[in-house]
Amino acid sequence: MTGLNTIGRSLLRDDANIPVKYSQVSRQATSAGHVLRILRSIKPGLVLSWLVMGVVVFWALFPQWFTSYSATVGVARQQLRAPSADHWLGTDALGRDLLARIIYGAGNSLSGALVAVGVGLMVGTTLGIVAGSARGRIDGAIMRGVDVLLSIPQLLLSLSIVILLGFGIVNAAIAVGITSIASFARLARSEVVRVRASDYVEAAFGSGGTFSRVLLRHILPNSLTSVIAFAALQLGWAILTISTLGFLGYGAPPPTPEWGLLIAEGRNYLARAWWLTTIPGIVVILVVLSANRISQSFGKAKA
């Protein structure tokens, strides 16, 4: 009888452990499913875009980490060398390492694009918020000025402004930023008007909220998401436009490394040294496409 009681208690202990073991297996299955859902939600194109932009940012901030060559001083008897183990992307007509010039050029191109986007974002968004909030004659006057800016081709306007300001990467960036003011202003105004007409904003006004309080607490936070996504898109456009101005000779002066200038310097040697124009052009394309892809992800997140 004692033996039977011992076997019974053992079976009861095993039965009591079954729910514990089942719950552990269930938690493990839930965790595995959660990890699987995260992996499925990762989009390779978006990850690659962030990786490209991250590399370019590190190039701009810490160029000496990625190359030991000078971006402005050439090596004797190393002119127009094809890509090799010593010079991964080859050399230019003065014996300067092309990879070093691209890496150091990231700082000029990216900083110029950030200045351009900053000018357009701050000035254009401010004008759009004022127009969408004030309405009436103020709105009409601001938007008529915006229409005038939008009626002028952006590249032509950029060239006109940079000629007035003078050549240089900073002046080119300011010129590009001025041409983007109209786009930011129109988008910001449309978002402010849309949000202001929503029910919760009307309820905030009806509950006694002042205009400035409702503007800061409800209208602006819900209006700037699209503007920020548009700023990411404008970053790629600014890099492309600044590179275009540099290619035309209105950007950074030689021997300053700048992506548009690199393409312009290599066009005379296209038959002998294809890498001088092709590789900087590919870099510009990758950065612009990456910025556009990131901007699209911001827009989808908002939706």
Rank of each mutant, 00 (worst) to 15 (best):
G177E: 00
G177T: 13
I178C: 09
I178V: 13
T179V: 14
T179D: 01
T179Q: 03
S180L: 06
A182S: 12
F184W: 12
A185T: 12
A185K: 12
R186D: 03
R186A: 04
A188I: 08
R189F: 02
R189L: 04
R189T: 14
S190F: 00
S190H: 01
E191S: 11
V192C: 04
V193G: 09
V193M: 10
V193K: 13
R194K: 09
R194C: 03
V195W: 04
V195G: 06
V195D: 01
R196G: 03
R196I: 05
R196C: 00
A197Y: 06
S198E: 05
S198P: 05
D199C: 02
Y200A: 06
Y200I: 08
V201N: 04
V201G: 04
V201D: 02
E202P: 07
A203V: 15
A204T: 03
F205W: 09
F205H: 13
F205A: 04
G206F: 01
S207Q: 14
G208I: 02
G208A: 02
G209I: 07
G209W: 03
G209E: 01
T210S: 15
F211S: 05
F211V: 08
R213G: 10
R213N: 10
R213L: 04
V214M: 06
L215W: 05
L215T: 07
L215Y: 02
L216Q: 14
L216P: 14
R217V: 02
H218Q: 09
H218L: 09
H218K: 09
I219Y: 01
P221W: 05
P221T: 14
N222G: 12
N222D: 09
N222T: 14
S223E: 01
L224K: 08
L224S: 06
T225P: 02
S226E: 05
S226N: 12
I228F: 11
I228A: 10
F230L: 09
A231K: 08
A231P: 11
A231N: 01
A232R: 14
L233T: 12
L233N: 08
L235E: 00
L235K: 10
L235N: 04
L235R: 09
L235Y: 07
G236K: 08
A238S: 13
A238C: 12
A238P: 10
I239Q: 09
L240A: 10
L240V: 12
T241H: 02
T241Y: 00
I242C: 10
S243F: 11
S243P: 10
S243K: 13
L245D: 02
L245I: 13
L245E: 01
L245C: 07
G246L: 08
G246V: 15
F247P: 15
F247L: 14
L248E: 03
G249D: 00
G251Q: 04
P254R: 07
P254D: 00
P255K: 06
P255H: 03
P255W: 01
P255M: 04
T256H: 05
T256M: 07
P257L: 14
P257T: 14
P257G: 15
E258V: 13
G260T: 14
L261T: 15
L261W: 02
L261G: 15
L261E: 00
L262M: 15
L262P: 15
I263N: 05
A264F: 05
A264E: 04
A264Y: 05
G266R: 05
R267W: 01
N268T: 15
N268S: 11
N268I: 12
